[in-house]
Write a protein that binds this DNA or RNA. Structure first.
Lengths: 233, 233
DNA sequence: ACAGGGCATTAGGTTAGCCTAATTATCAGA
DNA sequence: TCTGATAATTAGGCTAACCTAATGCCCTGT
């Protein structure tokens, strides 16, 4: 029995859990660098040894590059798989929100379960029904079917300079209650904000909205509000 | 340590595989009687010992009644769970067909995966968007959210008497190619058929459609065409 | 230069769900 | 009634993912 040539093996479908690990690594390495075992463990709510074990398997299948004691990064193949999951997730969130009346806060959990069960075909039908949206309901960019994603330089409201005007681009949180609160405050993607004050020592930021009203946002929430400079700044 | 009272335990969510077993048992006992180990094994494409093992666990959790060496039946609780899955499945099939352009043959596989991942809320939103449909695209009745299902006395075309007129009510098959073929032949739920001939020895049935054209249907396919007597028969 | 703290990994165990092989129950027909 | 064929069950294993406890590596601060 000679060893088979193993190049174009039809790679078995990824399990639910593998898909989740890849997504975590993608998010944790989006600023460059390595994803650490403990960060992944925290994000997925599993114990660190579970991560070590999975990382070993994933590097054997070529989806990640593992540098022992340092962390992991996605290979091109792993990145492709992660982006596909992120596309599924964001298309689902968009579809549930705009076609089935789900609210901003609830879609995440639903999409999290569905993204492992939908076929490519269903996602493309949904994308089509929505008119190929480029952003999900939280303002996050949706990767294309070909696996490209827009990379924007965003800065959180907590770090925006006083006096500057920014546009809220993306609300990076999956916590329903916080999202609902932010929505009530009118803090949704697309809103223009002028930073008019910030208390020292990680204190709250005060910003003026387009309609002249102001909002005082504590640091924890302000960190979730990702902004780009307003046009002409 | 005294034994805890075990009445209103918050019953853990059913696993994917448990849901599949319950559905099988439901379908296999729809004519009354017991579902046998080997029938379940065949339907789910697992080995018989896997079924024995699962039946043991399911009867411990009170979802089925197991009579050793005879078979199983659903308890009221198991029936409720099975009907919920069937509702999910059929609503999904209806939604995918009518809102996302899936075709008759393909929906089954997609729904089979999704039914384990959708929330109750999503199913009800879909049902609502469809106007609370009572039948799925194959003509099968959809259980209500309360868990009631229409039970009709149907007879397959292969067993309908020569000379009688029937209405095709439901096409009971999940095989895409067969469904596509039947659809091409115009054999969809709602069509009226008059049986004009049947060859002996399990031979084909010949039936006339409403438009006067005839179809010759081999026994294997005719068994899949479930009919009710036409009004006024 | 090295001691400790903190993180990562290895060791070893659990559970669900599947498998094959061996065993046992049931029932129909001689 | 007995005997086989058929079907169900038990026995014993495997794998994927998880866990806790024990061990090992790395780096910073004295």
């Amino acid at each position: 029995m000679s060893a088979a040539i193993r190049s174009p093996q039809p790679s078995p479908p990824l399990t639910r859990s593998v898909e989740d690990y890849l997504k975590s690594v993608f998010h944790l390495t989006s600023q460059g660098g390595f994803a650490t075992t403990s960060d992944i463990a925290e994000m997925l709510e599993v114990a660190p040894p579970s991560v070590s074990g999975m990382m070993k398997r994933l590097s054997e299948t070529g989806l990640i590059e593992h540098v022992p004691y340092r962390g992991v990064q996605l290979t091109p193949q792993g990145r492709r798989a992660a982006l596909q999951m992120i596309r599924r997730h964001r298309i689902l969130e968009s579809y549930l929100t705009s076609k089935l009346g789900f609210d901003w806060g609830d879609v995440h959990v639903e999409a999290e379960r569905l993204e492992h069960a939908v076929s490519e075909k269903l996602i493309e039908r949904m994308a089509d029904a929505l008119g190929e949206p480029r952003y999900d309901p939280h303002g996050a960019p949706i990767p294309t079917a070909a696996g490209e994603i827009e990379e924007a330089e965003l800065v959180s409201l907590a770090a925006a300079e006083v006096g500057h005007t920014v546009v809220l681009q993306e609300v990076s949180d999956e916590h329903p209650a916080r999202l609902r609160y932010l929505a009530e405050q009118g803090l949704r993607p697309g809103v223009q904000l002028t930073v008019i004050d910030r208390q020292p020592f990680n204190g709250p930021t005060t910003a003026r909205l387009g309609d002249g009203t102001t909002r005082v946002v504590g640091q924890e929430l302000a960190l979730l509000l990702l902004c780009r400079p307003a046009d002409g700044e």
